[in-house]
Design a protein around this nucleic acid. Structure first.
Lengths: 361, 361
DNA sequence: TTGTAAGCGTTATCAA
DNA sequence: TTGATAACGCTTACAA
């Protein structure tokens, strides 16, 4: 790939420099940001009143409040989140932990969540847990002193010890991407078991009987497989081979999984790929190897990947709305954190799965 | 897409619950995390010595240090980042701002950067600026009181006022994704102008003369276009049409751009797509419309998207290593923050671009 | 090498 | 409705 070097000549980019109209004589902002005390002095009140004007405006008289807000505006005051967090024991940070930052689905959910919480004055801090219990533990450890306002996981916490630690944080927690019976706190999920069942139903309905499965070996992959196997058995179809993959970072993993599947030597007429990149990779590899799809081989994938519907043939897929998932998670969080909330927002939600038939089944 | 509902029955996921071997009689951890004072008391030293043992181990005698670290381990102590940041005026947060969180390239760079800084005890906070000056401003505003240890931008800061604000933070700043003459501080970039020039050279060399361009209308898109136009003119090729797109979120935008291009009515034999999703979309749309590639139409794209090389036909592309970019950015940051650094690490780097010929030119 | 004292900027608590 | 005071947990500055 690209190497760094100073030997080759590179053309400098003629980057646009926009100079705003800055009034004459206005000095550059001071290096030290204004403190609450500066605002208080200029508004002729005490610091605590400024704090109240910003945090609980109802407790300050409209006249005083307006004067303060004017000074805040003029000085560009922004409260120091560290001081605030230290004193109050609660920060304005919402922590989000993603199993894999490179996966578009997780990013999408996190981004949607960020949009919602940012509108309510919180900031999203993203971390990665890499599907690992130890990474999960150190992530949670750091939360203990970070004291975020809330946490959002793109997954559920399995390790009992980590669950205990999280409960002790005593903050809103949103788990997602599955539909367990006993979430830690709040949940925006979908049923992975149903995803597998739906896959088997669809494939059998289309006449396929010799089924293969490929998916991640971890938690949700296993759930999808169990639903798939269960339903296939009910319908009298056979699962001839199961390919488990440790980590999926790119379509290349899907190509590899497909080749591994072939090496098994079993004959199969359909594959359920319980991960979007695996599905994409399998499709590309199978086509390249000259398999006619879906005549020689049917492919059904799982995941909210917009590329599935764009390829030709369009990939049949079981999908859910990861953007909505993040939005709902954000809404649950800000609702729980809002003292004026009436508490009627559901704290557990199971999103529907949608089978989007393409041209591969 | 998927709707949320409570009407449909969903199968609960039988989520694995792992119970670790926890020694009998050991109480659950206290809800209040241990403070430095707790550690100090147990180790028989003063709090400041604990602080030094963790932050500047060389200043503490090995014997004392070991005793302290043992207590730290036993108690699960983790310093309160807010208190630390408040007192020292510097937090362990590295802020990263991405133009578009959904773009794989940016995520990849940010993730790589996160890996590096996390190994040095920093935590990455991700924000999005959405290619907008006002979002950029509010992002920078929040940095003033967050006092992060450093900032990483997947882009360069154009607005002079925002540049001033950033300079006043007086922390390491890494800009990227371009090669301006005057970076704010540190830089890991590549030349967008050269990317455009390289594209024109390649297409003309392959015999194409009637060229079209599609790209984002913003800063880097404009730079790629200018290099492309410049070089095309030098080589006597004509740019028959230019499609500018405001925002690119998915391959669908590329499909749309291609259709817009057709509506122009000009004839062209090659397109340079200065954005990977535009290129992917254009390829899919052109193929669907029955264009033979590259006989009827050549396609060259720009961007570090691993899918380009996986499709058939493989997309010819001008690529750079976004992962390396993030890694370098992280290395620059930790080097600058490390008091023991000898300061020999280059603070500006221009990555090479690589033309990867596929089957579309 | 270790310790003492003070303070970072905010907000909880109590008082007016 | 507003204010005085103290404290959140850590690290700087200085002293021993």
């Amino acid at each position: 790939m690209a190497k760094a070097t100073d030997l080759t000549a590179h053309t400098h980019d003629a980057v646009l420099r926009l100079s705003p109209d800055r009034p004459e004589g206005v000095a550059a902002r001071p290096a030290r940001p204004p403190r609450i005390e500066d605002v208080a002095r200029k508004a002729g009140v005490s610091p605590i009143t400024v704090s109240r004007a910003l945090r609980t405006p109802d407790m300050v008289s409209p006249k005083t409040r307006d004067r303060i807000l004017q000074v805040v505006e003029a000085t560009g005051y922004w409260s120091n989140p560290h001081a605030s967090a230290l004193r109050s024991g609660r920060s304005s940070i919402v922590a989000a932990f993603v199993s894999n930052l490179l996966s578009q689905q997780y990013s999408q959910a996190v981004l949607a969540c960020a949009r919602v919480v940012e509108q309510h004055g919180y900031q999203l801090m993203v971390g990665q847990t890499s599907y690992s219990y130890s990474r999960e533990l150190s992530a949670i450890q750091s939360l203990r002193s970070l004291r975020p306002a809330a946490v959002f996981f793109t997954g559920v916490i399995e390790l009992e010890e980590n669950r205990d630690l999280l409960r002790e944080l005593d903050i809103p927690i949103v788990e997602s991407w599955a539909y367990p019976r006993d979430p830690l706190d709040m949940l925006v999920g979908f049923s992975n078991t149903d995803a597998g069942r739906l896959a088997a139903s669809h494939l059998v309905e289309r006449g396929y009987r010799r089924l293969a499965f490929m998916g991640r070996s971890g938690g949700r992959g296993a759930l999808r497989l169990s639903g798939f196997a269960e339903r296939a058995a009910e319908l009298g179809a056979e699962i001839v081979e199961t390919i488990r993959v440790e980590q999926v970072d790119s379509v290349i993993d899907g190509r590899r999984a497909y080749r591994t599947l072939l090496e098994g030597g079993h004959s199969f007429d359909a594959i359920f790929c319980a991960n979007d990149l695996l599905g994409l990779g399998a499709l590309l590899e199978a086509r390249q190897q000259g398999r006619r799809i879906p005549d020689d081989l049917a492919l059904l994938t799982f995941g909210d990947n917009d590329l599935a519907g764009e390829l030709s043939p369009r990939l049949s897929t079981i999908s859910f709305d990861s953007h909505a998932m993040g939005t709902r998670a954000g809404e649950m969080i800000v609702d729980r954190l809002d003292p004026r909330s009436d508490g009627t927002l559901a704290s557990s939600l199971c999103l529907d799965l949608e089978l989007i038939p393409g041209e591969t089944t």
